[in-house]
């Protein structure tokens, strides 16, 4: 690796590239939770929930684990580096695949 490449690698990626997508709004809606209620359960400020949902703030590992434990879902079901497909699309595709197999 050349010195120029090393220098390029040391520069943090732009915010857009570092964005972490999440399903928090959907999970909250499914459980009928307000931002305030989720924030209280996680021990954070409700505005922080809004920032995470909008992708304006990437939570740290400890908070990610807390969110994962709260929803009882694996981290990759809540957060992703790629935009999520709509849950309905994922569910219906799986159910149609299962019916095709049967």
């Amino acid at each position: 690796m050349s010195a120029v490449d090393r220098r390029k690698a040391a520069v943090p990626a732009p915010v857009e590239e570092r964005r972490i997508y999440n399903r928090l709004p959907v999970l909250r809606a499914e459980r009928g939770l307000s931002r305030q209620a989720l924030a209280d359960a996680l021990g954070i400020n409700y505005q922080t929930v809004g920032y995470i949902e909008r992708g304006d703030f990437n939570p740290g590992l400890e908070l990610v684990f807390r969110i994962s434990e709260f929803f009882d879902l694996p981290i990759e079901a809540i957060f992703s580096r790629q935009p999520f497909r709509p849950l309905s699309e994922a569910v219906y595709r799986r159910s149609s695949e299962e019916s095709n197999h049967a």
Partner: peptide, 18 residues
């Protein structure tokens, strides 16, 4: 801003500390 920004670490979440 909705919280006392200039307070102890334990009273702020990670975004507020940032």
């Amino acid at each position: 801003p909705g919280y006392a920004a200039d307070t102890l670490d334990r009273r702020l979440d990670e975004r507020q500390r940032l």
